[in-house]
């Protein structure tokens, strides 16, 4: 019955400006709960989602960093971050709260070409 697909979710938005970043993670968690093979790519302002030490109580929002730290428990281990986007923002992997693989633009193109479905947030 079930068909396993390779899903790529590209997260391009900073975390607290609108609901899209959270929606994307909810899709990832749900898809994974239904046995789909989920990869996440953080690119552009999406890399801000990964920043350590988010304390969103100050704006009465759910803590996006906490949700991201649940990815491993949901079996989502393919987490990529756009190396150029990190550099542009003077960030390094040390600043990030989950273990990610940093990828070049050519590796990103390959991710896009090799998956079955792309969701862009």
């Amino acid at each position: 019955m079930s068909v396993q697909k390779n899903l790529l979710l590209i997260c391009r938005k900073a975390p607290y400006g609108n609901a899209l970043p959270r929606e994307a993670i909810d899709i990832a968690l749900a898809a994974s709960a239904f046995d789909q093979n989920v990869s996440l790519l953080f690119s552009g302002d999406g890399v801000w989602q990964l920043l350590k030490q988010q304390k969103s109580d100050s704006i009465n929002s759910k803590n996006h960093g906490k949700v991201l730290s649940a990815l491993a428990l949901y079996g989502i281990e393919n987490i990529y971050v756009d190396n150029d986007s990190l550099k542009q923002r003077n960030l390094s992997k040390d600043n990030l709260l989950v273990d990610t693989k940093s990828v070049t633009i050519n590796e990103i193109k390959a991710l896009c070409n090799n998956c079955d479905t792309i969701f862009n947030f």
């Binding site: 391009r12 690119s43 552009g44 633009i105 990103i108 193109k109 896009c112 070409n113």
Partner: peptide, 8 residues
């Protein structure tokens, strides 16, 4: 721009 960057 973001889209063009990812285009193959």
């Amino acid at each position: 721009n973001d889209c063009l960057r990812l285009c193959s």
